[in-house]
Nucleic acid binder design. Structure first.
Lengths: 226, 226, 226, 226
DNA sequence: AATGAATGAGCCTTCATTCAT
DNA sequence: GATGAATGAAGGCTCATTCAT
């Protein structure tokens, strides 16, 4: 595991920087603290990275790479598996990735989304677009050719949101319980199963093109057939 | 005469502060700019509010109150309407509220969630809990008494997330298109309908307790009956 | 005399800044020292002037205005006096101005010429051009209408140079004797008389259009007639 | 083979240092840039020269030697030529030397005069004194034994100034046109001739001991005879 | 009630210099 | 002989806060 710890000063700085940026955000993080925690001189960041901005970009890039490597997007599901199975893989991978304590890129991303510094715009776009393309493709496969482009994007957005937002809340609740409300997300596997079930039903409903049953209490007849 | 506009210096400061906090976040907003934009003296904030922190809290509280007043949680749906109708009301209200350009509280909240200052923790909790309780109650009603507490929370979380996250992305894409990816959210009514359809299907699936159909492509028989 | 000493902090800062900029130049002058000497807080300059650059510009402008006011370009000679008398006035004014210990603008100008920061370019141009125009006009008057534009500029340049450069050396010799060689410039009035005599002879020679006598030792015949 | 170009790291550093010191002055030049431009390691200067100060001194010494070698003070005029001819030689040599783009010592000298670092004081003195002695001797020869020591120094100073100052302006105008005013110094030979004519007339006037003609417009009678 | 002046702590950055290799 | 890493001192600037009026 610990086969290549941050041994050089530069690696240590990067590693510490990720921590601090996650904890405090770009603006509140100070180079002084990063250097101090890394046991380096106060000018070390500027020597190795040139500026705080560069360090920030480098930090996210590094965290993102580690995060995706630890949790590949397909969730370990072979590419020739059924679509629903591959969806499960993606959902599981996304949730696990965010849940992973060492997935710092996600939190930097969240800060960046909420209060963009502009420094990560290009880097994030270039890295995230490919991931999104894959999910969109899978969504189209699930919805079938009759689905409109808008329907595909809406469904993708819904599924991603059901993974993202709750996990953000969970993480916040762990970090600062006074801010986020509890969400019963201790049982991650149960949550993954829920998202899966909810998503498939939603996708099926969109695909069926039927207007939603006006009252779910009336769906007994339908359920019986499933 | 002009009693509704912020006429007093203090009101003007509060109004400007909301704008600036939304634009730049707590850390990047400066009292100097707020005072300048408000046409007030550089010491005005500290005179009227005592500190930047207090101003921040007041700003969110003020923005939140205005936002909820403009978009009541029930979406205008009477309390004796069917549950699905009331769900539609809540979803529409939430989405509309976030979409509303003058709903600044939401964006402050987002920043606070992504990068908490800790200053809004208590204020936000106390204001948000009642709203959430209502949604949870509605969700329980939809799921029926057999549903577990966990299922209720999961479903509530899923529905809220499907509203929240996409709208955040939309707003970000409007503000800084280079950061957020496009999401086809121009047609808000279509999106509301989508969330409604997706949610009801998901809730129904959870309620039915059935394992999700393994392959949505096999649901043809069921769909025909719905 | 001391009717309006720098009483406000801003005036004191400006006054001290001129001193320090003259002593050390733009780059070696530090805001810390300026503030310290002015008995002000370390952030005072940025409060009153916004930046070191602005202070620098303001300092030169202020010094130049004081300098020209103390030594008007015409040297006190009425505009209807003979041209040679007005030339004497300008030469005396220029030399006296530079010699004046309180004429700090000149030394800032010298530094700026030798190693331009670019910050004073526009300010200096706009202030110096009018002065130069006057001298050029006088020179044309002395040289007569037959003189070419080039001859006018050359003569003006020569006269100005004979005033400027030696005075720079003198000031340097006073400040740091080890750098500049001695130039017998203690007797300022004698020097002014020398420049006057030298200039008039030069101008007359140029005006006469004659080739310079090949050997001054042969000029006896000519001198006798003058 | 390539023995004349700076081949060793040390020579290259020296060569680059001259360039950079000329461009930016002592303070604004950085060792980092010098090393970078020389393709050397960031610690190379301190390794080869011990300090920035030493490098500066070496740089000027080197530039000065090259400059004087390229433009000997006598301007190629034999020592047994008439005094006026030798003066022409010195004037031409000085002006040509300053005009020469590769004469970097002059510009370092100018910076040093305008804003002395003190580092070149001794070096410059020792190198410049011999040159000045020669010019003073020539001046005494031209003025004759009756001239006072002061008159000799004044005349020498005037002639030197008429060469120095305009050429500084010219160079500055070439480098940063926005700072220095134009001076019609494109035609260098014409300028040399002007200085020669102006100088000889001035020297003759001083020598003649006559008070300058009060009004050059009255000199018609004299001019006719010259 | 409100303001202009002033403050001090802290931040990012630069750069000549040093040191171990 | 030469280098890459590292250092520490210092500088300009920002900004919330305070104070006298």
């Amino acid at each position: 595991m610990a086969s290549q710890d941050p041994t050089t000063t530069k690696e240590k700085l990067l590693s510490v920087a990720i921590e601090v940026f996650v904890e405090k955000g770009y603006r509140d993080a100070t180079l002084a603290e990063i250097c101090r925690r890394a046991g380096a001189n106060g000018a070390a960041v500027n020597y190795h990275f040139g500026s705080k901005e560069t360090l920030y970009q480098e930090a996210w890039r590094c965290a993102f790479a580690a995060s995706v490597q630890a949790h590949p997007q397909d969730g370990g599901v072979p590419g020739d598996s059924p679509a629903t199975e591959r969806l499960r893989g993606q959902i599981r991978a996304l949730i696990k990735r965010i849940a992973d304590d060492s997935s710092r890129d996600f939190f930097i991303s969240q800060m960046e989304l909420a209060n963009p510094t502009g420094l990560l715009a290009e880097v994030m776009r270039s890295q995230l677009i490919p991931l999104r393309e894959k999910t969109l493709a899978l969504m189209r496969e699930l919805l079938g050719p009759q689905a409109s482009e808008q329907q595909v994007m809406f469904c993708e957005m819904s599924v991603i949101s059901m993974c993202f937002h709750p996990m953000l809340m969970r993480r916040l609740h762990q970090k600062t319980p006074q801010v986020a409300l509890p969400s019963a997300l201790e049982d991650l596997d149960a949550f993954i199963e829920h998202v899966m079930q909810f998503s498939l039903a939603g996708i099926a409903a969109i695909k069926s093109g039927l207007p939603p049953c006006q009252d779910v209490n009336d769906r007994g007849a339908c359920d019986a057939d499933c």
